[in-house]
Amino acid sequence: MSLLPLVLFLLLITMAVATPLRPGFYSETCPEAEVIARDVMKKAMVREPRSAASVMRFQFHDCFVNGCDASLLLDDTPTMLGEKLALSNINSLSSFEVFDEIKEALEEACPGTVSCADIIIMASRDAVSLSGGPKWEVKLGRQDSLTTSKEDSDNIMPSPRSNASFLIDLFAKFNLSVKDVVALSGSHSIGQGRCFSVMVRLYNQSGSGKPDPAIDPMYREKLNKLCPLGVDENVTVDLDATPKLFDNQYFKDLVAGRGFLNSDQTLFTYPETREYVWLFSEDEDEFFKAFAEGMVKMGDLRSGRAGEIRSNCRVANRKPVDNL
């Protein structure tokens, strides 16, 4: 009897078993990996300061959809419609070129070694710390997915019109707590949102034909000027009062009724999340600690499917194997 089927079976099983994540994963194979990633991120922020907020959010948008596997970075193919065109990503996520630049630098230093999935995790951490936020130790050792799915992203990622209750239920599916929900929502401490995401709150909350009563009147007046009816809804607005600085201003704004998104403001109006909004608005250190812990927990999400180390983050090296 030929041993070939058994050898192939064992190979596939080995491919499917996830390597344990750990700090310093590349200490021997690519010891400068984290330094290289941070240097490229720093240069990208000098070139375009808004890239920090966008890069940070890639971890959320990638990890929630079938685990942290860089499926978000794959381009469409004739037979595969990817996550870049998903409702939560199209016209929203940008700075894909930053990951290309980090990958190029790492391929030059350590060919075929550092996964695109790990690049997302490192770059997200660096985007936060370089914006004044916390720095934490990342666990590395992920592989890159062979596939991507617009449908999966559309089915999983929340709408900006979601409320706190919906977010709690969604995060619970990934073993993330109510405290994690609030702390990780603090990612909106930096960056901007589109008028598209706030129009219902301003003009037709819950189909009432009226604005959301939770919005501070002066803040609503400001938003009305920035996002009037008939505006190009891709116009962007700061998510908090200090959009380039990662701090706890976001939570202070929620307490004052100045949350931009419905999913933001309901964190303060919903009893189960309000206590953490108060806590983080008064204690930035507590927010930083909780945010870092939440990012590490989110980074542990994995699909368990076979993967690879892509040479180009936009394209899989090989075709997926069925039934893995």
Rank of each mutant, 00 (worst) to 15 (best):
V17Q: 12
G304M: 08
A172Q: 09
C68M: 10
K210L: 13
K150L: 13
M199K: 13
G259N: 15
D264C: 02
A86P: 06
N317R: 15
S189E: 06
L8Y: 11
Q192H: 14
S153V: 11
G209I: 09
D62M: 04
R314W: 14
Q192D: 14
V138P: 03
A117D: 01
R47C: 08
L93P: 02
F174L: 09
V178P: 12
E108H: 06
E275K: 09
A256Q: 15
T242Q: 15
D247H: 03
P23V: 00
L21R: 06
R50M: 11
E286G: 15
A33C: 05
D62K: 04
E104W: 01
S115K: 06
G191L: 07
E83M: 13
R125G: 08
S263H: 00
K84W: 07
D238R: 05
A316C: 13
N248V: 09
F268R: 08
N262S: 08
D240V: 11
S88E: 15
W136D: 02
G133W: 07
D322P: 14
M122H: 01
L4N: 05
T113Y: 03
S95V: 04
Y203I: 05
K135A: 12
L239P: 00
D212P: 04
V296W: 11
S153W: 03
F166C: 02
C30H: 05
R142L: 03
A86D: 09
I102R: 00
V255Q: 14
G209H: 14
K252D: 08
N224A: 06
L10R: 05
S115G: 01
D126P: 05
Y270P: 01
S311F: 04
E151V: 04
V296R: 07
F268V: 11
I168L: 06
N91P: 04
R22A: 14
V200H: 07
D300A: 14
